[in-house]
Design a protein around this nucleic acid. Structure first.
Length: 478
RNA sequence: GUCCCCAUCGUCUAGCGGCCUAGGAUACUGGGUUUUCAUCCCAGCGGCAGGGGUUCGAAUCCCCUUGGGGACGCCA
């Protein structure tokens, strides 16, 4: 059997956004599933809008997501190829030079639209005589090469492995440009050439390309190339149900990375948009996704990119993350919050591990760490809020705190169990309720009346810090 | 204007003619666990766009309407 070859072909005119990332992911999963290859092809034929900066950021984002490609190409390295084939088509009279200027075209397009006619090229340069062409050249007009649509326009049927056959009654296009006046190819042309030359077996892209695919099929025919298989994915929508864009809030992969999302959370969420395992499973590792991925399970309708669900996935993965890794990826955010220094000593790192392990259930995203109440307990300066003050003003509180301080101060360290034991002793000694011990203890040590498990908090803080805080609570009240 | 795609809870989805009083997840609400918050567990809320067919039987098949989305560039 021939190896499956699929590709992801972004244009480097902006950051990789989640829609593109999903297309890349699905292609990658497909390749992995079939022991095939993923080709990353940068479509940078728009010299003005493309930039090397974006090419690099797209590669970086894909790597961050864990998506690996087997081959890499840039269309700007291949310009002679496209030009050669364009000339071939002209020679075969399947394409021709067009001298219309962009202004003229724009004017005609507008007029057509106003008149309720399809805004397509009217083919007026189709049959220019040599003399006319010569005259245009002498006027200094630049030319493009247009593909000549077959006279007898066939009903184009796109065989779509996801949607089934898609039949076009008529193409919403006139003779389209295949080579621009600067010598670079237009999208459809370069795409067909490369998919063929790179031996792509299956072209899977979002359905905004459906009409492009129809046009491209004409090109395959004119070029006498075998067609790859095609498949079209639904669109990813913003909360307003329109095509996901910058207006829909953060949509670039880079933004999610900067905002403290884990790549596996984004991958998992993306995999669930437009694909279903059909078995109620929600959390998938990449190897499970690879195993279960199938074109049969792809959903035809478009879907809204839901931030709430992403947050839930992210929380799930934060809770599952290996602790050392969690420390590594959390550190930048904690530094932004001025909680920790850049270089951690061994014992500081150990403490941080415990702190993060304790508070991770409350984290939706790592940016929450920049300003986090629970982190303040360990790294901020202690400030009592009004509710905490109130608890400390209970009649029983001073005696409780004094007792606790006395017992804690004899310890070298504190385990959660030891805290329990001591709390119990104090409770029984003073004949008070548990909450009359726990609440003032929490208030004095954390400055708040809610937060993570206090026994765990004390065991991380240790007896010295704990007693210090108990004492200052007592002093400020005497 | 022309062409194309799509249509189950707010959102992501299961359902491929009887198992549907439509299942799960998320979000939301309430309860339980916890000294407390988060987590976790339980419960509740909430949907087949409308109309015609086909059939003994339709969320499921067909048609129409409506709605949403996309395409129609010397952008990709």
């Amino acid at each position: 059997m021939k190896t499956e070859r699929v590709r992801f072909a972004p244009s480097p005119t902006g950051w990789l956004h989640v829609g593109g990332a999903r297309t890349a992911l699905f292609n990658w999963l497909y390749a992995k599933k079939h022991d095939g290859k993923l080709i990353l092809r940068i479509e940078d034929t728009d010299l003005d809008r493309s930039s090397e900066k974006y090419t690099e950021s797209i590669k970086e984002d894909l790597k961050w997501l864990g998506i690996v490609w087997d081959e890499f190409y840039k269309q700007s390295d291949r310009l002679e190829i496209y030009e050669r084939y364009a000339r071939r088509l002209v020679h075969e009279e399947k394409a021709y030079h067009c001298f219309c200027t962009e202004e003229e075209l724009e004017e005609r397009r507008q007029r057509a639209l106003d008149g309720g006619r399809p805004p397509v090229y009217d083919g007026r340069c189709r049959n220019l005589s040599e003399e006319e062409k010569q005259q245009y050249r002498e006027e200094g007009r630049e030319s493009v090469i247009r593909f000549k649509l077959p006279e007898q326009q066939p009903n184009v049927v796109v065989p779509d492995r996801i949607k089934g056959d898609v039949e076009f009654e008529s193409l919403t296009t006139g003779d389209f440009v295949i080579l621009k006046s600067d010598g670079t190819p237009s999208y459809n042309f370069a795409c067909v050439l490369d998919d063929h030359l790179m031996e792509i077996s299956f072209t899977m892209r979002a359905e905004d390309h459906l009409t492009n695919t129809a046009k491209q099929m004409l090109l395959y025919e004119a070029l006498d190339f075998n067609q790859p298989q095609f498949g079209h994915l639904s669109m990813l929508l913003g909360p307003d149900k329109s095509k996901l864009s910058k207006r829909s809030g953060a949509t670039s992969v880079k933004d999610f990375r900067k905002n403290g999302y884990l790549p596996e959370a984004l991958v998992n969420h993306l995999a669930q948009l437009g694909w279903s395992s059909k078995d109620n499973q929600e959390i998938f590792s990449v190897s499970e996704l690879t195993k279960k991925f199938s074109l049969d399970n792809i959903i035809d309708s478009s879907q809204v990119f839901d931030r709430d669900k992403l947050d839930w996935f992210n929380n799930q993965y934060i809770k599952r993350a290996e602790l050392d890794r969690l420390v590594d990826i959390s550190a930048p955010f904690l530094q932004q919050g001025d909680y920790i220094e850049e270089d951690l000593k061994e014992d500081e790192r150990e403490t941080l591990k415990k702190v993060l392990d304790l508070i991770r259930p409350s984290l939706d995203k790592l940016t929450d760490l920049k300003d986090h109440e629970d982190i303040e307990i360990f790294y901020g300066s202690l400030e009592l809020n009004a509710e905490a003050e109130e608890v400390l003003n209970w009649k029983s509180s001073p005696a409780v705190l004094r007792e606790l301080e006395e017992k804690f101060s004899t310890r070298e360290s504190l385990s959660p169990d030891e805290v329990s034991t001591i709390v119990k002793e104090v409770k029984e000694g003073l004949e008070v309720e548990y909450k009359e011990v726990y609440k003032p203890l929490r208030a004095a040590v954390t400055g708040k009346i809610s937060g993570p498990e206090i026994k765990e908090v004390l065991s991380i803080l240790g007896p010295e810090v704990t007693c210090g805080r108990l004492n200052s609570a007592l002093e400020s009240r005497s």
